[in-house]
Design a protein around this nucleic acid. Sequence first.
DNA 1: TGTGATATCACCCTATTTCGCTATTGCCCG
DNA 2: CGGGCAATAGCGAAATAGGGTGATATCACA
Lengths: 212, 212
Amino acid sequence: MIRVSIFEDNKHLRETFRLLLDQAEDIQCAGAYPDCINLVENLEQHPCDVVLMDIEMPGMNGIAATKLVKEHFPAVYILIQTVFFEDEYIFNAICAGASGYILKSTTPDGYLESIRDVQAGGSPMTPGIARRVLELFKDKLQPATPVQDYDLTVQEKKVLKLLVEGKSYKLIAADLFVSIDTVKTHIRNIYAKLHVHSGTEAVSLALRDKIV
Amino acid sequence: MIRVSIFEDNKHLRETFRLLLDQAEDIQCAGAYPDCINLVENLEQHPCDVVLMDIEMPGMNGIAATKLVKEHFPAVYILIQTVFFEDEYIFNAICAGASGYILKSTTPDGYLESIRDVQAGGSPMTPGIARRVLELFKDKLQPATPVQDYDLTVQEKKVLKLLVEGKSYKLIAADLFVSIDTVKTHIRNIYAKLHVHSGTEAVSLALRDKIV
DNA sequence: TGTGATATCACCCTATTTCGCTATTGCCCG
DNA sequence: CGGGCAATAGCGAAATAGGGTGATATCACA
């Protein structure tokens, strides 16, 4: 028996959900709330396995509520259901700890299926949402690759790397077994190639553009 | 009519897929290949809308192949199908540009559904994979929030920010309308709090820990 | 064989940074 | 009211960084 709590400010929709859930044999509505006031207390008194969470709610929104639920009840799965397709919402919902994200256009059976799915260890997502998640994933993580690598030579990269680690010219020279004047020359060349005039600027650029 | 190309080294499986696809009314097999030799030429001669890609293949693996396909045919959707559940594979497949990731335990109808789904703009994923994607997403992007904020005061943060921008003490002083000696004091305090001893180190730490 | 890129090193000079110590002002809190 | 903290400011010394100029050796490539 999967116990489900509903958070939905629209009264009509909330009651519809409750009926839908209770009508299923393997699902039971543990509670239905119009807002997140006393959220923690409510869930403590009426434990559940899955939370069906609306995003647009008065007072605390569904994203913040998701975070709160996850903090107090890490084992509870949260299924976001909303009309919003925006990347920003999807992104924040996932980071807040949601385990699924479905649009309100889903069929009644779709809701039941999604609840069963989330309880079984899956992450139901409306197809379009899933695509957005993958795109977001790619976008956010792709820039982890160098944007530009300027034309630093191998040795210059080594020097820059050590500079980023916060080492002084003297220490860099010692690390590379060269004289301090050589390090100076390399750094001079690095600055010219990166168009910067100080170590802090170079480090900043190196980290931002992932040259190191 | 959805045209699908198959990349699968197992001959038996490959032929099974071909039969399965051709048996569907709205899907047509555009080609079936045991490896990625002449991949680009093959796809040029036999255009398709969706690629069903195996990960484990001799020679070029499915991840690299995905990247290659996306480079030459950005509009083609790639559906990864594999026995691997590993995070590393999932992660790389997504970054390479895959639009779906299903496990080989899927039913025959599941394959057809996934192909239709991917063509319709969705991203079919085996439930467990979807969950892993969300987890990975959270893990990789969560550290985007400050790890530690040390105990920098407002003014110290401003100074650090300007330091990260590569400004000298003199410029920082001018920006904040204070004397250069005040900047010196702030920087001394910042270094003490961050446990560093140079500007480059401070910048490095500030950027890594997202203090700025 | 000459040319260019890379890596190495030296000397000089100035600007900047780092760090020591001290000190004043204003503000909040018990 | 006194103590703590943030912000301000100053002085001085030593270390470090930044730039100018020039030189040598190696290696690849035309």
